[in-house]
């Protein structure tokens, strides 16, 4: 292919801000994500480490005893890094940094299933299809036609519900106008009952997300790694910021 991957004029750069002080860990975002993205029900033998969770809410504790004990819930998904460590390691361009949206695209049909990207990702945001996806009888008809299902043996991850953008763009083009911000929102954002997640175009200074992106209490996880994530988190609790800066491993968990 000729021509450089230039970022065109007026390109978008989608980002997200998640308010940890608001999140109550209900998991609605996880459910909405799975339903929206045609994630097959996990087989009986699956566990929390080998199922498909493109978005996962982790509890984060300060490790102190009562009464100093504190906890927040961290919805963790692909951080849509501007310098994605998963992109450069993929041997066959199944991961691509979409220069028109800033989304790190995972293309399942190109994926070999080597899982190098999963090893490279420090956010553990990628999932592998360890099983053949199977839906109970009749449940196929509830699948979302806007996004493909993935076969066994490929990696997948959050694409910021990019298919929703396509639908929104199609409608807008038909009506001869630009996409409105509320037309393209990922399923998790819509599902959050407390409005903890704000999503939008960071290149648009008027977007809701741009207004809180640089807030003083906003931070990114593992920002010293140089991955430049486009998802930021907010919290007014100092210990949350401290934890995010330095990771300390907990106890060992064995499986096998």
């Amino acid at each position: 292919m000729s021509g450089p991957k230039e970022t065109p004029q007026g390109a978008s750069r989608y980002g997200m801000v998640i308010d940890l002080d608001r999140c109550n860990g209900c998991g609605a975002c996880m459910v909405a994500c799975a339903v929206e993205n045609n994630v097959a029900p996990a087989p009986q033998r699956a566990n929390d480490r080998n199922g498909i969770t493109l978005l996962r809410v982790f509890p984060m504790r300060n490790g102190r005893d009562y009464p100093e004990s504190r906890q927040v819930f961290v919805p963790m998904t692909c951080q849509q890094c501007d310098a994605p460590p998963c992109e450069s390691v993929c041997p066959q361009h199944a991961v691509e940094f979409d220069w028109t949206t800033g989304i790190v695209a995972q293309i399942p049909v190109r994926c070999l299933g080597c899982r190098y990207c999963m090893v490279a990702c420090p956010y553990h945001a990628r999932a592998f299809n360890w099983w053949d996806p199977e839906w109970p009888e009749g449940m196929e008809s509830t699948l979302n036609p806007d996004i493909s299902t993935r076969s066994r043996g490929v990696a997948e991850k959050c694409n910021f519900c990019h298919h929703r953008r396509q639908v929104a763009r199609e409608r807008a083009a038909h009506e001869g106008r630009e996409v409105r911000e509320d037309e393209y929102q990922p399923a998790c954002v819509e599902a959050c009952p407390v409005g903890a997640i704000v999503f939008g175009d960071l290149n648009d200074p008027d977007s809701a997300v741009a207004k809180v992106y640089e807030a003083p209490d906003a931070f990114a996880f593992l920002d010293k790694l140089g991955t430049k994530p486009k998802i930021r988190y907010r919290s007014r609790q100092e210990w949350v910021h401290a934890m995010a800066r330095q990771g300390v491993p907990e106890k060992e968990v064995t499986r096998g």
Partner: peptide
């Protein structure tokens, strides 16, 4: 683990 809330696995 890399994330502060993730576990050491084996």
């Amino acid at each position: 683990p890399t994330l502060p809330f993730a576990e050491v696995l084996s």
